[in-house]
Amino acid sequence: MEAVLARMRALDERLPPQDGVAVFNGVYLTVTQTLHRRIERGGFPAPRAARTLGVRFAERYLAAVESAADGHRAVPACWRPLFQYRRHPGVRPLQHALAGINAHIGHDLALAVVSTCRALDCAPAALEADFDRVGDTLVTLEERIREDLMPGPDLLEIADPLTHLLGSWSLDRARSGAWAAARLLWTLRRSPDLAQEFTESLDAGVGLVSRCLLTPLPAPLPTRSPCPALFAPHDRAS
């Protein structure tokens, strides 16, 4: 896991802070460091399995970053919106963070579970306890992410649409969907054509959700003085 952490830290140093990919990378780096510490401290029942899952999970995100930087390799549909809107002035940091989490949990996690099962020669059920602990860590951090990146009182003009937009997405639901998708893909492992069709459909569907999460929002309106016609005292005849 140290190798993928080093790659994320290198990205953190290289990307400008306002870049949407940098926002997600900072969040994911924190999550991965937390998971790594918990694994090393014995917080997972099967540390080898948890470590393998964590590495294969992270490698899918890093592969998407490399594909986008290369310019000649196809970026998975789930990640395309984040790379397309990474510098859009109407997209807020919280949107970038959650769109990246949506892509990574909604699509990459299921594929990482299947890849881990193949590597360890086990069924998904053998990873369920570690999967749940990873998910619990992510859910715990989600609230902190929302608090840290939510606009402050000076941006109340955008807070309402932002709250409405992001309130429609749930990490817990995304995690449950990823587990169901992993189990289905494992069942389809002997039907590669069906598995590929399902994977492509999953990729496209998650990408659509990410695009919605990255809907540009209006800039906050300038503060205006109260209208004199409404608030000035009426003139009285002397």
Results as ranks from 00 to 15, higher is better:
97 A>T: 11
97 A>F: 06
99 A>T: 00
100 G>K: 00
100 G>Y: 02
101 I>Q: 11
102 N>D: 07
103 A>R: 10
103 A>N: 09
103 A>C: 10
104 H>F: 03
105 I>R: 00
105 I>E: 04
106 G>K: 06
106 G>R: 06
106 G>T: 08
106 G>A: 08
107 H>W: 07
108 D>N: 08
108 D>Q: 04
109 L>H: 07
109 L>Y: 09
110 A>C: 04
111 L>C: 03
111 L>F: 05
112 A>K: 02
112 A>P: 02
112 A>E: 00
112 A>Q: 02
112 A>F: 00
113 V>M: 07
114 V>T: 06
114 V>F: 02
114 V>R: 07
115 S>L: 08
115 S>T: 09
115 S>W: 01
115 S>F: 00
116 T>L: 06
117 C>G: 07
117 C>T: 08
117 C>H: 09
118 R>Y: 07
118 R>P: 01
118 R>H: 14
119 A>I: 04
120 L>R: 09
121 D>T: 10
121 D>Q: 12
121 D>S: 14
121 D>V: 11
121 D>K: 12
122 C>G: 00
123 A>L: 11
123 A>H: 12
124 P>C: 10
125 A>K: 09
125 A>R: 12
127 L>S: 04
128 E>Y: 09
128 E>Q: 15
130 D>V: 07
131 F>W: 13
133 R>Q: 12
133 R>I: 09
133 R>D: 05
134 V>S: 01
134 V>R: 03
135 G>D: 01
136 D>P: 02
136 D>T: 10
137 T>I: 11
137 T>D: 06
137 T>K: 00
138 L>F: 12
139 V>R: 11
140 T>N: 05
140 T>K: 05
141 L>W: 12
141 L>N: 13
142 E>V: 04
142 E>R: 06
142 E>G: 03
142 E>S: 05
142 E>P: 03
143 E>M: 12
146 R>E: 10
146 R>I: 13
146 R>Y: 09
149 L>N: 05
151 P>W: 00
151 P>N: 04
152 G>Y: 05
152 G>I: 08
153 P>A: 11
153 P>M: 04
153 P>S: 05
153 P>E: 05
154 D>N: 08
156 L>M: 12
156 L>R: 14
157 E>H: 12
157 E>R: 11
157 E>F: 12
158 I>L: 15
158 I>C: 11
158 I>N: 03
161 P>D: 12
162 L>R: 00
162 L>E: 02
162 L>S: 02
164 H>A: 12
164 H>P: 00
165 L>Y: 03
165 L>H: 00
165 L>N: 01
168 S>A: 15
169 W>V: 15
170 S>V: 02
170 S>Q: 05
170 S>L: 01
171 L>F: 04
173 R>L: 15
174 A>Y: 06
174 A>E: 14
179 W>D: 05
180 A>T: 13
180 A>D: 13
180 A>Q: 15
181 A>F: 00
181 A>N: 08
182 A>T: 01
184 L>P: 02
184 L>Y: 07
184 L>I: 06
185 L>F: 03
185 L>D: 01
185 L>N: 02
186 W>P: 10
187 T>D: 08
187 T>V: 11
187 T>R: 15
188 L>V: 04
188 L>Y: 04
188 L>G: 03
189 R>I: 06
189 R>E: 08
